[in-house]
């Protein structure tokens, strides 16, 4: 009898381990899908705020998951505003005053360009699996696509989103929905992704929407109008000097 119980316990533990492995596996596959050595994209950011719609366009260059450089092209007020992200650091260049401002401290949690994204959201780099434990919790159908639902719970407490729920397309390994929670369990943000396009053997969503639930009646859409991957980008692009150029 005792022996049976022991066997059962081992089996349950193994099953758990397998589930966790599967969760991590899914996240890893998503990363493989979305992260390119380099990318160049043009995008439209549509911010719905207090019954107004504000559209901004921008061009973004990315290198791996840690470096990116963006230039705003419109509207006139934002034209020439540049963002540089290197690992955990971010700088903004404001052409009006010809000044570079480092985003740090309390500013990180503020809205980026008035959108529902915070600077912190934009800064997020590195492997999610370093900070979170991934567990496959269930499977659901979202927009007629069967999905895995992966629960990511942080291993550390000093983190903005303590828990994330990610819905991953079973077939394409592209996330279609993500919900972000505070440690209290309060839902902070909801992100949806769509318009998945195939690039070579990989898939990339060209539409993203983000709703910050702490703000009222706002929604930010990001529409990638042009995307090129794995091209060669000059190394000096990802240095502070490129901001003032």
């Amino acid at each position: 009898m005792k022996k049976t119980l022991f066997t059962l316990a081992i089996a349950a533990w193994l099953a758990g381990a397998v589930l966790a492995a599967t969760g991590a596996e899914i996240i890893r596959k998503v990363d493989e899908n979305l992260i390119y050595k380099s990318a160049r994209m043009e995008a439209k950011m549509i911010i719905h705020i207090w019954s107004e719609v504000r559209t901004k366009t921008m061009r973004t260059y990315q290198k791996g998951r840690e470096s990116s450089f963006s230039v705003f092209l419109s509207p006139p007020r934002d034209q020439g505003v540049k963002y540089l992200k290197l690992k955990d650091n971010m700088w903004i260049y404001l052409p009006d005053v010809d000044k570079t401002i480092k985003i740090a401290g309390h500013m990180l949690r503020q809205s980026m360009m008035g959108s529902d994204l915070s600077y912190e959201d934009a800064l997020e780099s590195g492997d999610l699996l370093d900070k979170y434990t991934a567990t496959l919790v269930s499977e659901e159908v979202v927009k007629q696509r069967p999905c895995f639902v992966v629960d990511l719970t942080a291993r550390v407490k000093e983190i903005t989103y303590y828990r994330r729920l990610v819905w991953v397309d079973k077939e394409l390994f592209v996330p279609v929905r993500e919900e972000l929670f505070a440690m209290s369990g309060k839902k902070l943000k909801v992100m949806t992704l769509g318009n998945v396009q195939k690039y070579g053997s990989r898939y990339y969503p060209l539409y993203m929407s983000m709703r910050n639930l702490l703000r009222q009646n706002t929604l930010t859409e990001l529409i990638i109008t042009k995307a090129e991957f794995d091209l060669s980008l000059p190394a000096e692009m990802f240095t502070q000097s490129s901001l003032t150029k």
Binding site: I92, V97, I101
Partner: peptide, 16 residues
């Protein structure tokens, strides 16, 4: 003096 603040819409903004 460069005054840096946020616009009504939350963007970072500055003026000399």
């Amino acid at each position: 003096l460069t005054v840096v603040t946020q616009t009504a819409y939350g963007s970072i903004t500055a003026m000399n």
